[in-house]
């Protein structure tokens, strides 16, 4: 009278099963698609609106076309937070961990899915912004070209920052668990608050996330100009530091997740 145990496939649940679960979860929420649509459309929209006006006579820099990407960074940061705090708020997390009690594997799967979706979103937004900015130029101003030194790098790295923002949000959401508190920390303190601090404290400014996105990743010229109080980080150092922030948030999140009751 005992029920089977015979139809169990060999092996056991693995990362790829959990990545599939997380992908189904992400794609089945309308908010995901709204966020992606907004993050893809807002930056080129801003580039269209401002692209011509903030160009200098010497030609427009690629970083001018990418100003709107900061909106995308905030959006994907929040989306990263929500992928995990939304589960705690609704109680889905207990269903998730009952299905897959190895929590770090679940977190890794979430990171892969959030990171990939945010990366695709970010690259689409960055390339669209670049082309939109060029379209919006007034006559007589030279638009930057993809073939110019550093232009392609600026676009690709700025696009990638959305992925790192998503992972940073995911990590902080895992640490904090509560939606409102985690969004306050990510957007209010780290992104916006940090930017205010940077306006008065030039020494730490190059290390603050939004300044890295706007002044390091999108830069095509030198990081140091004569007379500047401090230099910006180079594009690759900037990306490395953003990746470091995301990694620290994810690691702390993982440590806490493995120890705390679900």
């Amino acid at each position: 009278m005992t029920v089977r145990a015979s139809h169990q496939p060999p092996g056991g649940y693995r990362f790829r099963h959990l990545a599939r679960m997380e992908w189904i979860k992400l794609r089945s929420l309308r908010s995901t698609w709204l966020t992606v649509a907004l993050a893809v459309c807002a930056p080129p929209g801003i580039a269209l609106a401002t692209g011509g006006s903030n160009a200098t006579s010497g030609g427009m820099s690629v970083s001018n076309t990418l100003t709107g990407m900061l909106v995308g960074v905030l959006l994907t940061g929040v989306a990263g937070v929500l992928t995990v705090t939304g589960e705690y708020a609704s109680g889905t997390i207990s269903a998730t961990f009952a299905a897959a009690p190895r929590r770090l594997r679940v977190l890794a799967a979430k990171a892969a899915v959030v990171g990939t979706v945010a990366l695709v979103t970010g690259e689409a937004a960055a390339f669209l912004s670049f082309f939109a900015g060029a379209v919006a130029l007034r006559h007589g101003i030279t638009a930057p070209a993809l073939s110019q030194p550093g232009v392609l790098r600026a676009i690709v790295l700025t696009g990638a920052s959305l992925s790192l923002a998503g992972l940073f949000g995911l990590g902080l959401g895992t640490i904090i668990r509560h939606t409102a508190a985690a969004i306050t920390v990510v957007v209010g303190i780290v992104f916006v608050g940090g930017t205010f601090i940077g306006q008065s404290d030039f020494a730490i400014r190059p290390y603050l996330p939004l300044y890295i996105v706007s002044h390091s990743l999108g830069a095509t010229g030198p990081a140091c100009l004569p007379g500047m109080a401090s230099c910006w980080l180079s594009p690759w150092s900037g990306l490395g530091l953003l990746a470091g922030y995301a990694a620290i948030a994810m690691l702390l999140g993982g440590l806490i997740l493995a120890r705390r009751d679900a």
Partner: peptide, 8 residues
């Protein structure tokens, strides 16, 4: 569907 995917 998401839960089903996690356990193949």
């Amino acid at each position: 569907a998401a839960l089903a995917a996690s356990n193949a």
